[in-house]
Design a protein around this nucleic acid. Structure first.
Length: 815
DNA sequence: AGCACGCCGACT
DNA sequence: GTCGGCGTGCTC
């Protein structure tokens, strides 16, 4: 009987691929294992086994697999089901899901290696390039193709290599490179023969003249006696203060032995704190949640900022861990949650594993393996959106914290999934519960709760009855008209800042734009420098004296004269965080100003440093973009200022109002903790805007009602679902005609439910012209059916030769 | 997606 | 004459 496997390859192709396997391989292979398979002319890829079967393909000859890479599945059956759901729902291939889901370390790829043929001698027959290669191979026997390319400084080296191959001068070989390197730590132990007291006495006697060596041995004993644990070489060196040579000498004398243990790169301490006593309201909320979970799979917890949601989560987590089940705690942006990690770590100690993209690949593999092995170290997983892809075996609870955050949605590349929604499906597969938590729930979740699809629990008290901050709107239209502004600060805001500084309290200022100023404009001719690759104005970054594009990374020095008219009359318009920071330094020279935005938080510990400096009160005023609004608690902040609320409100998106409300309330929540009532000042040109009014009264209910009414009126989610199609190409005419064609074909099925084609606000990025089409999925038809139609139209689109090179992205639930 | 193949214009 | 540009087709 012939045996075959269907495998998922990490490429964006819809189909699975079938390979032939031997009888022995059939007995060994299971879905979820990795195999290395030859693909195309020469490459070897890592694939995941999806199915083992006996159905021989008829249209082609299946190739043999190259190698089995695992002894047991590294992907669980539940994961494979979950992947399938994501691929179907978000209209992408399983291969794309695979690429996102698996740490890239697991995806070994072959690299072609060039090896010299030793029997080859007739070097005279070689061309110059060929000779260079052979010469390089004299020094180093094996060279990857890239190196060859570098040596010759040419891109196309394959023809040359083919000639060498013909002349039998070289051999090619595909090498698979294992990327994961376990971290090994050196330990020291005493040679067995000195366990005997007499032998030990003799040893010490023998070392009586070697003071340092004796010292090292004595230190070993005191360490060993104190901890009874294996002793690291490093530790011994540090405590005894001897040089490495001393230890080496003892090893050579066979007094000490060195051995290595593979360790995890990330280790947490044991738990140090016991759980906090819940307040009366928290306790009540906790009980409500448990009651709600009896009836609902998903419960939405709407708890105002500082209501102590985390403490309630902790109690729920503990309850689930005690049943021996795993808990996934999703957070929007893990790098911002060092405070949360610290807190959870105190309660759960080394049961926590953290998973996010700023971790190194090796660290991610370790977390993956720990989860797969159901290790004690990974009972509670704290992670960003991609942690829904970890190989859980027995998930009991998923917490989605700050459920409304947009960073749960992946926009590029595919799979364009929403981690909250994918988490609910994942929980379903595990029969686990989901808790969505937020102070400002997304309309869709609140709607689902209202429709009784989710349970709903509300928590309206701040912990310790701290009052909600007092929010005032400051009209800056007047201020500007009467020239009463101090740079970008209104009189009122200046008063509040001075008051807070006098009281030695800290201040957070929020401006949702980085750089110095978003537009540079010539006062003589009105021309402003644009990015050559994108359809945007360049942002001025004063510190670096540069004009920068925030979309493609293009940058150049600020020109002295206008490139259009030649006059030295360039001026800046609008302002970003950098300008605010500089203004503050001028206005408050005796206070320390900090800035937190994408530009200052690069690197693994970028955030950490700034947050710590602010927490330890080294910084008095912190200026930042929206990243300030996420999950940070500072106990000495009495004032939060929003410099301009209008650009958010006027953003051209159906969710602009909802998002503004959420962001403003979240930033406001940073004000006034423990001690006293905080103050929030929101500067705006339009203080009568209904959203701003709702923010001042913390009126979620009215905001929800009004926004939902509008969504009904204009048929937007959560009333309807949407799919967004994005077309991109370098040729403007090509995309435009493609978009028109697409509109016409979609019109037959969807009629007026299609919006577009439109050029987005930024219609060209990295020299790619963009067109978008929005499809509102009709309520009266099945969503799957509608998606099938879209898929069919996509296929026809791509079979038109002229449109084939146009990039075609489908984004389901593009919000 | 990646990669080979093949066809065409710009240079040693 | 070759190098390298990119359009086209295919991958079990």
């Amino acid at each position: 009987m012939n045996n075959f496997v269907n495998v998922i390859l990490p490429i964006p192709l819809q189909q699975l691929f079938t390979y032939s396997i031997t009888e022995a391989e059939k007995d060994f292979l299971e879905p979820g294992m990795r195999v290395a398979v030859p693909f195309g002319k020469s490459k070897i890829y890592t694939a995941i086994v999806a199915e083992v079967h006996q159905k021989e393909p008829t249209a082609y000859q299946a190739k043999d697999i190259f190698q089995i890479l695992d002894e047991r599945p590294i992907i669980t059956k539940k994961q494979l089901k979950h992947w399938q759901w994501i691929a179907n729902y978000y209209m992408c291939s399983l291969g794309e899901v695979l690429r996102s889901a698996l740490p890239s370390t697991f995806l070994l790829e072959s690299e072609t290696q060039v090896i010299k043929n030793k029997e080859f001698t007739s070097e005279s027959s070689l061309t110059d390039d060929e000779f260079l290669i052979i010469e390089a191979l004299e020094h180093q026997e094996v060279l990857p193709i890239q190196k060859i390319s570098a040596i010759l400084d040419k891109k196309r080296v394959l023809p040359i290599l083919n000639n060498l191959l013909k002349k039998k001068a070289i051999v090619l070989q595909e090498e698979i490179i294992e990327q994961y390197t376990p971290k090994l730590i050196k330990y020291i132990r005493l040679n067995e023969r000195y366990i005997d007291q007499v032998a030990l006495g003799e040893l010490l006697e023998e070392l009586s003249r070697a003071n340092q060596q004796r010292n090292a041995v004595m230190t070993y004993f005191s360490l060993h006696g104190a901890t009874k644990k294996p002793i690291k070489q490093k530790q011994l060196k540090e405590v005894s203060k001897v040089s490495p040579a001393v230890i080496k000498a003892l090893v050579e004398k066979e007094v000490f032995e060195v051995y290595t243990i593979q360790t995890d790169r990330v280790n947490f301490q044991e738990a140090t704190d016991s759980f906090k006593e819940l307040s009366e309201f928290q306790e009540e909320c906790y009980n409500d949640l448990n009651t709600s979970f009896e009836k609902n799979e998903v419960v939405l917890l709407h708890g105002i900022t500082s209501s102590g949601k985390t403490e309630i989560y902790v109690k729920l987590i503990d309850q689930v861990l005690k049943q021996g089940k795993q808990v996934l705690y999703l957070v929007p942006e893990i790098a911002l949650t060092t405070q949360l990690i610290d807190r959870l770590q105190k309660y759960f100690g080394n049961k926590i594993a953290v998973f996010h993209s700023k971790y190194s690949l090796n660290e991610r593999v370790e977390v993956w393996n720990n989860v797969l092995n159901k290790s004690d170290k990974a009972q509670l997983i704290l992670g960003a959106r991609s942690s829904i892809f970890l190989p859980f075996s027995e998930l009991g609870l998923i917490i989605v914290d700050e459920e409304h955050e947009t960073s749960y949605k992946q926009f590029d590349p595919a799979p364009r999934y929403h981690a909250r929604d994918a988490a609910i499906v994942l929980a379903n597969l595990h029969k686990a519960k989901v808790l969505l938590g937020s102070a400002t729930p997304s309309l869709e979740s609140y709607y689902n709760a209202e429709q009784k699809k989710y349970g709903l629990v509300e928590l309206n008290r701040r912990f310790g009855n701290v009052l909600l901050p007092e929010i005032e709107l400051v009209d800056i239209k007047e201020g500007y008209r009467k020239k009463r502004m101090t740079k970008h600060f209104s009189e009122r805001l200046m008063v509040l800042i001075n008051e807070a500084l006098d009281e030695k309290e800290q201040i957070i200022l929020f401006q949702n734009r980085r750089g110095y100023s978003p537009i540079v404009e010539c006062k003589s001719c009105g021309v402003s420098p644009q990015c050559p690759n994108c359809d945007v104005s360049l942002t001025y970054h004063k510190l670096r004296g540069e004009l920068k594009c925030h979309y493609c990374g293009y940058h150049k020095p600020l020109p002295k004269i206008c490139s259009a008219c030649g006059n030295p009359s360039l001026d800046t318009k609008g302002f970003g965080t950098e300008q605010i920071e500089l203004e503050l330094q001028e206005l408050f020279p005796n206070h320390k100003i900090g800035r937190m935005d994408l530009d200052t938080t690069r690197g693994k510990y970028g955030y950490h440093k700034i947050i710590e400096a602010f927490q330890s009160r080294e910084i008095d005023i912190l200026v930042g973009t929206q990243m300030l609004s996420k999950g940070l608690d500072f106990d000495n902040v009495s004032l939060v200022g929003v410099l301009n609320a209008d650009n958010m409100l006027n953003f051209p998106d159906f969710r602009a109002h909802e998002k503004s409300f959420q962001m403003l309330l979240q930033v406001s929540g940073r004000a006034g903790r423990a001690k006293k009532r905080g103050k929030v000042a929101i500067q705006t040109f339009n203080p009568y805007h209904q959203i701003l009014q709702q923010v001042t009264t913390n009126d979620y209910a009215t905001m929800y009602k009004e926004q939902l009414y509008e969504r009904h009126q204009y048929k937007y989610p959560p009333i309807l679902r949407m799919v967004k199609i994005t077309l991109k190409h370098r040729d403007y005419i090509k995309v435009t005609s493609g978009a028109d064609w697409l509109y016409t074909s979609l019109y037959n099925t969807f009629g007026t439910n299609i919006l577009g084609p439109t050029s987005p606000a930024i219609s060209r990025i990295r020299n790619q012209h963009i067109k978008t089409i929005l499809i509102k999925l009709p309520q009266d038809k099945s969503i799957n059916l509608s998606k099938a139609v879209i898929q069919k139209i996509k296929n026809s689109f791509q079979s038109i030769p002229n449109y084939r090179p146009i990039r075609f992205n489908v984004d389901v639930d593009n919000y």
